[in-house]
Simulated scan of single mutants.
Amino acid sequence: MPQKLLEKVALVTGGTSGIGLATAKRFVAEGAYVFITGRRQTELDAAVKEIGENVTGVQSDASKLEDLDRLFATIKQEQGHLDVVFANAGVGELAPLGSITEEHFDKTFNTNVKGLLFTVQKALPLLPEGASIILNASITSIKGTPAFSVYSATKAAVRAFARNWTLDLKERKIRVNAVSPGVVPTPGFHLTGLSDEQLQESVDSQASTIPMGRVNTPDEIAKAVVFLASDDSSFVNGIELFVDGGMAQV
Rank of each mutant, 00 (worst) to 15 (best):
S195W: 09
V150P: 14
T209W: 08
S132I: 08
L124R: 00
L97W: 03
A207N: 05
K143E: 10
L124F: 00
H81D: 11
L97H: 06
A157E: 03
L228T: 08
V113R: 09
S195R: 10
T186C: 11
G246M: 06
L117S: 03
V28A: 05
T111F: 03
A131Q: 12
R175F: 01
R175W: 02
A248Q: 13
V113G: 13
A229Y: 10
S60Y: 04
G188Q: 00
G238S: 04
P125D: 00
K64L: 04
K49W: 09
R163I: 08
M247I: 07
E240Q: 03
G130Y: 12
P146S: 12
L169K: 01
I174C: 06
G38R: 06
D219N: 11
L21A: 11
A248E: 12
R159W: 05
D219E: 10
V203R: 11
A178W: 07
K114H: 07
L5I: 11
G80H: 05
G193C: 01
T140S: 11
I174N: 07
S149F: 05
E93Q: 09
Q41Y: 03
V120S: 08
A160I: 10
V183F: 05
A229G: 15
V28H: 02
M247H: 13
D69I: 05
F235G: 15
G52H: 04
I51Y: 11
I134N: 04
P2G: 15
H190A: 06
N88P: 03
E50T: 09
K122V: 10
E43N: 12
Q198M: 07
P187H: 01
V34L: 03
P181A: 02
T140D: 13
F27H: 00
I100A: 08
D67A: 14
L124Y: 08
V120K: 02
D106W: 02
I142P: 14
I210S: 14
T74H: 14
F72V: 14
A224H: 12
P146N: 08
E129G: 10
G15W: 06
Y33F: 12
V183Y: 10
G38H: 06
P96I: 13
K143L: 12
A229S: 13
